[in-house]
Design a protein around this nucleic acid. Structure first.
Lengths: 342, 342
DNA sequence: AGAGGGTTTAAGAGCGCTTTCAGGCATTGC
DNA sequence: GCAATGCCTGAAAGCGCTCTTAAACCCTCT
């Protein structure tokens, strides 16, 4: 690299002031279009690189937005991220992505880093146990926060997520309507709002159908294919095997179906399985997975939009924005078969 | 937010100069430890946020490293990213992640943004058709680049990737040793170095075993489960059905197995399938997938290490660093069965 | 021709931090 | 007891950009 090209370099070679160059590059109407074009051509010719650190030091607007979720490799968050990315791209915002893996510590480091970089805002799916102070840390330093997918108590920032209780009740009711009475629930934890809401939806649906809730049929925890696979092994070893399983998400459901298949049973015939999220994988699983679409793309898009609006002054009303999930019925669920039937 | 706390705020409240505060926070030996502790306590008490933009404007080191790959949601890149993340975290570097979706344009925008932010370096898996100038753009502006997973012609920056030709030959030879002669290859394109190398490995393995290469048995393109699923439908409709399939990656292989199962055949018995990458999913697929471990974590870790070393002055030798893949034999491959056998 | 109006450009003061260099103060050696 | 030796601290310049204020310029109109 020959030498750093800066505004003043362009100004000198053209015999104008740096102010004019700055204005011209920013398309200010204060600069004549002839001058502006001349300046832009010269900038290109010299290979000028705009220095955002210097600019944002002055303007205190960095164009950086942070996004932090549990795990960006989890397809559920992946679909939210894609929607956020698309929305932010349209506004030419740079976004910084990070996993917190449910470590409050890692999440706080991320927020602090973002503040140091002068981030304009942050979209987060908070780690389990996130203290409200960590959100306030961002807000107090002029960095608005928006939550997605999970709520936390004691903060009043906008939240976008699916209506979990309703969504899981859709799945549970579907199984009940197929004649199932012994329905397990696999995955989720009481440590997140999502976990609590989904379990609630499951319990309420059972109660409404006058089915007793058997605590042995709840296996909290699993979130991955691996987890679903292991849960299958466990459930199929119970004296009273469930005939249907409501899974935390599609990954768990696919793992569950694999586990059922390994045991020599046929998912969808011997044991019905529902997923949650309606990932791309769901439709091509074997058998195709009955699941609940959770509005990931809506969540991502709306959250990004809300943040951008907020940055532009129009203060979006705070509070929870629930997206209504929808049922996707495929082949992994079927009518109850009698014990020794076939 | 009450008011911006800066170095000078701390300095004033303590009656020392800003220089002392700066030095103290940076743990300079020039400041007495008593003073240093007092300053640090005060900084914490006031809720001071270090302004990296201002600092990096002065030091021209930002602590930001860019990482751009085809698609962060693709588990193959995901495992590379995890390794990079772990390595960069140890050096307290912030990293900015992006997808390019094989758009050279999007990739260039990313590089430019990174330059504007003063990025210290960039790790990239270049988009198909990346012109060498785009890499030079980074290097010429003092931002070292490291390539992962894919090579491109005409640049001499360090490259870390698996030995694709060798890896695919492992899979192909494995199938040949099981008696298969009619072996399809699904996925990959001649547009990437990886695609060319893997096809080459496949062809060479067949030739060495005196098996004719049938162009109809190559289906370029698929990369996803969906793609593998569709390829299965196509292959099983051929007059001369293949008895084994070498797949581009594990996702394609899993999709392929789903497609085979949908057709009423048993993967691993009726049609053998190999994957590539050895993702977590491979081991729990049904049947468990025979695949080739491609050293993703090694690639990520080494690439990050190389970049950090380079930033610290020790100039890593350029050139290609090949990681040796390894075979993982599971249940999705089995001996050739005679046409009407069983 | 001069004034008034509109348009275009220049000047300059920071944004918050780093870092060198010189000077102040206390301690030690003779 | 006095000079020398460390150890700390403060002053100040400047990283590259923005943006307001004010001045310069060029018309047009009277």
């Amino acid at each position: 690299m020959a030498q750093k090209i800066k505004l003043s370099t362009i100004a000198e070679t053209l015999g104008v002031s740096t102010a004019t160059v700055s204005l011209a590059l920013r398309d200010s109407p204060l600069v004549a279009s002839v001058t502006r074009d001349k300046i832009k051509d010269q900038a290109r010719a010299l290979g000028y690189i705009y220095n955002r650190r210097a600019a944002s030091l002055r303007t205190s607007r960095s164009g950086i937005i942070g996004v932090v979720v549990h795990d960006i490799m989890n397809p559920f968050y992946g679909e939210i991220l894609k929607a956020i990315e698309a929305e932010l791209d349209r506004d030419r915002q740079t976004f910084i992505l990070s996993n917190h893996y449910d470590s409050v510590e890692k999440q706080r480091v991320f927020i602090e880093t973002l503040l140091q970089l002068g981030g304009d805002g942050v979209i987060m799916s908070p780690a389990i146990g996130t203290p409200p102070e960590d959100i306030k840390l961002a807000e107090d330093n002029g960095m608005p926060a928006i939550l997605v997918a999970r709520s936390i108590e004691g903060v009043d920032v906008p939240i976008f997520r699916g209506d979990d209780a309703y969504g899981i009740s859709l799945a549970t009711n579907h199984l009940i309507s197929l004649g199932h009475r012994c329905i397990a629930m696999v995955g989720g934890t009481d440590l997140t709002s999502t976990g609590r809401d989904r379990y609630l939806g499951y319990v309420q649906a059972l109660r409404k159908a006058n089915i007793d809730v058997d605590p042995d049929l709840r296996i909290p925890g699993p979130r991955s294919m691996q987890g679903g696979f292991e849960a299958a092994v466990h459930l199929l070893s119970l004296p009273q095997k469930p005939t249907a399983v409501v899974c935390w998400n599609d990954l768990v459901a696919i793992g569950m179906m694999n586990g059922i298949a390994r045991a020599g049973l046929v998912p969808g015939r011997d044991v019905s399985v529902t997923g949650y999220d309606d990932l791309e994988e769901a439709a091509i699983a074997t058998p195709a997975l009955t699941t609940v679409w959770n509005g990931q793309s809506d969540v991502g898009r709306s959250a990004a939009r809300a943040l951008l609006d907020r940055l532009n002054g129009s203060h979006e009303p705070d509070g929870i924005h629930l997206i209504k999930p929808e049922m996707r019925i495929r082949q992994s669920t079927g009518p109850l078969r009698l014990q020794q039937g076939d």
